[in-house]
């Protein structure tokens, strides 16, 4: 019984651990099985992929600055971790927004490689 409680506590602590932006780069690279490319990420970010919007439509081509929602005009805080310490620190949030925004821009989910590339580029911004 005591053993089970310890295991539960360790699992809980691991789950509650806050992520840092680099964790997501490693996670997506591992899922993709290839190294990320910041250059590819930059291109992907600012190019429309068949949909009406690119990532840059809301986050701007320079995501160290604030953006604006393309539809509602609501202000969006900077996406690049260098400019906004809150970004990419919560896995549930990261997964939720990749799911929604990839659907809106690509009409499908993003591949692990696409996400790794974007992470690599965002982390390269100063």
């Amino acid at each position: 019984m005591r053993y089970l409680l310890i295991v539960a506590a360790v699992l809980f602590a691991a789950g509650a651990r806050a992520e840092v932006p680099r964790d997501f780069l490693s996670r997506f690279e591992k899922e993709a099985g290839v190294a990320a490319s910041a250059e590819r990420g930059a291109r992907f970010f600012s190019t429309r992929q068949g949909g009406e919007w690119s990532c840059a439509s809301c986050h701007t081509e320079k995501p160290t600055q604030a953006g604006r929602h393309a539809k509602t005009e609501k202000a969006i805080t900077p996406l690049a971790p260098a400019a906004n310490a809150e970004r990419f620190t919560d896995a549930a949030k990261v997964d939720k927004w990749f799911r929604r925004n990839c659907n809106d821009t690509l009409n499908r989910l993003c591949s692990a490689q696409e996400k790794a590339d974007v992470m690599a580029w965002l982390l390269s911004l100063k």
Partner: peptide, 10 residues
């Protein structure tokens, strides 16, 4: 998931 043209799924 189709919220006024935007995916707002929860």
């Amino acid at each position: 998931d189709k919220h006024y043209g935007v995916d707002a799924s929860l």
